[in-house]
Amino acid sequence: MVRDVTLGQFMPGQSVVHKLDARTKLILLIAIIVFIFAATNYMSLLLITLASLLVVLLTRISFKMYLKSMKVILMVVLFTGIINLFYGSGEVLWEWQFIKITEGGINNAVFVTIRIATLVIISSVLTFTTSPSDLTDGLERLMKPLTVFHVKVHEIAMMMTIALRFIPVLLEETDKIMNAQKARGADMESGGIIKRVKALIPVLIPLFVSSFRRANDLAMAMECRCYNGGRGRTRMKVLRFSLNDLWALIYVLIIFAGVILCNIYFPATIR
């Protein structure tokens, strides 16, 4: 069912990682993603993966949840892995007509798969340990300088908050409407692509109608609570850097140094 999606879901907790400032987490995540793509050999990649797993341990969230979030994009991981299998040079291990699998291809496939898996896990750390509003709040503050260029930073952050809040609501609603139409004999499981797209109309139209209704209600509820854009607004939670944030920074810097050293001292796996 669509409701079981765990990707990007906040899990409240009291761990060190939970307590980090959202801004720190955002910046460090971006840094780690850059490292992941900068790693050119198994040693440096493994270093990042292990470092990421250590962070996962620190979050004190069951590893099962991370695996579950991985399941959602398993297809993407497998697909990129398999595609990479056929590209590459080196000794040919298996051949069938124009398809051939080379040693380099296997290397590439394994490497890319680990890369994406690490990417998903470390991104999940951010979404699992940071409440949606801390996240948008952090983004809003990080992007604040952009207001100089007339970027509507507050509005973007508010849109994100509302989107995050309503995605589960709309998923559940989709489920309900689908069931209701199935009960009227709608066939959504068989037929070609055109038939399937057509079969979605009875689901999409009610979903649109209800989204507009919800938007209307929400706008009224926000008005009732004196919402007036970003002007004069305060926040309950004040984001503040602490000693932990410094440690996190140092940790990431060490990984950075490690990745550079590994990249220099070991031969590159993929080209």
Partner: peptide, 16 residues
Amino acid sequence: DNQIVAGIVEEDVAFG
């Protein structure tokens, strides 16, 4: 459902 703005209870209560 339609009048809760934030994804965490206390943050929603703080909104006003």
